[in-house]
Each structure stands twice: as C-alpha cells, then as structure tokens.
Design a protein around this nucleic acid. Sequence first.
DNA 1: GCAACAAATAGATATTTGTCAATGTGTTTT
DNA 2: AAAACACATTGACAAATATCTATTTGTTGC
Lengths: 101, 101
Amino acid sequence: MNIDEKRTAIIFKALCDENRVKILKLLGTGEKCACKILEELNVTQPTLSHHMKILCDSEIVFGRKEGKWMYYSISERGADQAKEILNELTVINGEDCNCCK
Amino acid sequence: MNIDEKRTAIIFKALCDENRVKILKLLGTGEKCACKILEELNVTQPTLSHHMKILCDSEIVFGRKEGKWMYYSISERGADQAKEILNELTVINGEDCNCCK
DNA sequence: GCAACAAATAGATATTTGTCAATGTGTTTT
DNA sequence: AAAACACATTGACAAATATCTATTTGTTGC
C-alpha cells in the first residue's frame, strides 16, 4: 500500500483533540445520538457538530440520520483503515543509516 | 486500560500533519539522521526540528544524539502504545442507543 | 400552516500550529 | 582558539482550529 499523506493527516486529526477522544470513548459503548453525546461534554451544540464532522470525515465514525436525530457510531471499516495505516507507518523495513558516520 | 485524553491527543498529533507522515515514511526504511530527512522535505532546518520534537513527544519516534548529529528512528514501543490506544478507542462494547426512540 | 425541537451553518474571535529568518549551543576539525 | 558544522531555540507572522452566539434548515406533532 502507498500511503497518502493528506488523507492520513485527515484520518488522525480525529484523534488529536481531547474532546474527540472523549466522544470516541462514549461511542465505545455503542451507537449514540448527538443529543446524548452533548450531555456528556462541556461544549455547545455547534461545537459538537463541528467535532462530529471531523470524526465523520476521518471515517472512523459513521453518522446516520433518523428523523430529526443524528446517530453516531464507530465504523469498523474506518477504524480498520486507520489501524492499517498506523501499522504501515510504523513498520521498520530497512537498515540503519550510516550517511553521517 | 483507561485512556488519558490529553496524552492520546499528543500521541496522534504526530500523525495529523502531512510533513510528519512523510517523515515517518522515511523512517520506515530505518534510522536516519536529521540532515538526511531535511534533504527529503521542502522545509527549513528549524521547521524540521519542530516536527521532530512533536514526533518525539508522541514517543512514536526516538532520537539519539551522536556527536553533532541526531539520529531518529521509529520506536517500536511507542508505536505499539499508539496501536493499543487506537484499538481501545475503536472497540465496540455496548448496545445500540435507544435514548431518542 | 405553525410551534417545537434537533442539528447544521454562518460569522466572530481567541488560541494553536506551521513556517521562516535570526540567533544560540554544543561538537568537531584545523 | 578559531572556524565550521549540526541542531535547537527564539521571535514573528500567517493559516488553521476550537469555541461561542445567532441564525437557518429540516423534521415532528398539533
């Protein structure tokens, strides 16, 4: 696989904000509606909406609309992709560098 | 494991910038000195230094000094920790939310 | 259609981040 | 010791980000 840097940055942006990590932890107990997530965080509704967008852009979180509610859950597919990229980026293939010795 | 949100954000900050992803890809072929990495990126030396600090703060990258050179490599330990956190954050344990139904 | 509700969008603002030029620090070489 | 080199730190600045208030959009129930 050849990793796209821009896409990788978008994916892991999901995980580099405290509130978004909290949201993922909440989603770990299963699908949640936005209103429920909002209760658990100390942010306004628009701020939550902003974070949910970033999480969905990463594809680690999946959102579905049902009537006037939005339900969010962790996407196994998206999570697996993030894991695969993390694996690829941290595998060590080569030799030590002697360029400066 | 109970995941610390602040620490998690610091760890994954390593992966949410294009240049840092490029650096990780370079380190995938083994330990490299800063000067070699600098050749491959379109940034100045202080900018590289800044990125290397963020990568080392995440502990995904390890730096060692040898004389006037800095050698960087991927830390298996740090990478494993990032993988473990990503796993924990994307495992689904619970039931679907019925709170709004 | 209208009121009530849930979520998204727009606009404003403070903070954080990525970047560079200039300078400082520590090491090697002459 | 002085010069050269590799890297870190500082300070400045523009761009991106997180947050809020106000408003808009879309859905439900009267």
